[in-house]
Amino acid sequence: MGITASPNWGGWLVAYFFIGGIAAGAYFIAGLIELIGSERDREMARGAYYLAFPLLVLCSIFLIADLHRPERFWHMLIQSNTFWPMFKYWSPMSVGSWILSAFGAASFVSFVDTLAEDGRLGLGRFGGWARSLRLSPVGKLFAVLEMLAAYGLAAYTGVLLTATNVPFWSNTNLLGALFMASAASTGIAALLLLQHRTASHESLAKLETADSLAMGLELLIMIGFVISLGGLAGRFVTNPYGLVMLVGTGGLGLLLPLLLRLLAKPLGRNPAVVNALLVLIGGLLLRYGILFAGESLTSRVG
């Protein structure tokens, strides 16, 4: 039993980390596609833009629901007694509140822009402007901003956990990196799942390669994470929640789909949907395992 008390960050936070990770990962890769992808690949980016903003709205609901005083959620952004902006660059939760706002604004613009581009806003020929704006230098600059906001959202949650005194969370500096890699792998998996019927074979193959690389990175960081725990590594690998992460994420969510992809050619079939689902489940178990492994070593639950 540790001395630190449990913040009791439960289901809402696991859901937020997971869904926020998907939104951030998909948005990150969409920004990248805008910058370097071919015209055909942009189809995948558009899928991400339709996904990111609605997921972010969902995240905000989860986060507000998690507060014990939900009606005071705005205290994170505005000082309630002076009405000046509230910002502490050294507090990950404070920074994260602003990152969420920035991501919300950016993903909303992308969402509306994509609607216009696809002619779903009834703008007629003005819809074409959205497209030309996207392809202009302004659009490219915006893609960079998209990637920055997505990186922030993906990574700050991991840094937030590290900036505590909870066992496991505070014994490593790799949670931000791990959550970033997991956001990428789950975000891309969500795009694969969403578009495996509509997108071109070739774009899907590219996306799958990007996903596999992110998964490999995630696996490496996960190993690094366990090593970085030092004296607590043994306790983590025997902790039930730690095992959920190692077996569930490492084995089922990363190794198995990577293996299935490697064997796709010799076997003559590529279970793309199964793979994507496995990666998504792995991403969920990663957040679940890390969150509850830490809280299981706190002193007083409740």
């Binding site: 990248l32 596609i33 990574a155 990428a184 590219k206 990007a210």
Partner: peptide
């Protein structure tokens, strides 16, 4: 531990992770 001690190293490591993800995407596309 002081919570803020972790912010800078954790942030840099997460940037490295984001950079590698981007490089992976660059390679793939």
């Amino acid at each position: 531990k002081l919570p803020s001690r972790a912010v800078i190293p954790s942030t840099f490591l997460s940037m490295g992770s984001a950079l590698l993800v981007a490089l992976g995407g660059l390679f793939a596309f």
